[in-house]
Amino acid sequence: MLIAIGSLTLLGALLGAVLGVAARYLRVEGNPIEAEVEALLPGSQCGQCGFAGCKPAAAALVKGEAPPTLCPPGGRAVAMAIAEKLGVSVSFGDQEELEPEVAFVNEDLCIGCTRCLKECSTDAIVGAAKQIHTVIAEVCHACGKCAKVCPTDCIEMRAVPATLATWHWKKPRVKVAS
């Protein structure tokens, strides 16, 4: 009896000491996964997710306070990458996925103020003061920051039209007989 108590106590003390030492020597500064998740996000700090930028969004994702689908410009690819990294399941529900969009400048209304230019985090808008601006569609990632700052509301987000090269079959809506 005494031997048993003694040996268990000793074992506990030893393991406790090991853990204590390990905690001291193997300590990790910050949460590494947070940085990894942040690396997956677009990094344009657009704030569409409701967080101040990509870093706080990553923090929320790691804590499980936000769904992996939180990033509209990232679309499905980013959502799936995040879900895989965090080991959570991602559900797109029945929503026909986050339709890709692109910013569009209505040239009749643009006054050439260059505010959108300064806001764009991927330099996707070209133009100069007093000249009509235009969006390079391939570079725009639809964060929508430009639309927010435009004083004449001349920028709108439009769905990217499907082309013969990008069109693909929809998932079968299986009418499994029931």
């Binding site: 677009p42 990094g43 344009s44 700090q45 410009p73 990232g74 679309g75 499905r76 690819a77 980013v78 890709p100 985090s121 991927t122 330099d123 996707a124 570079v139 990632h141």
Partner: peptide, 15 residues
Amino acid sequence: DRRKQEMTKRLAEQR
């Protein structure tokens, strides 16, 4: 999408 994401990230970093 992934290619575009990579490009976006690169551009954002450069900027």
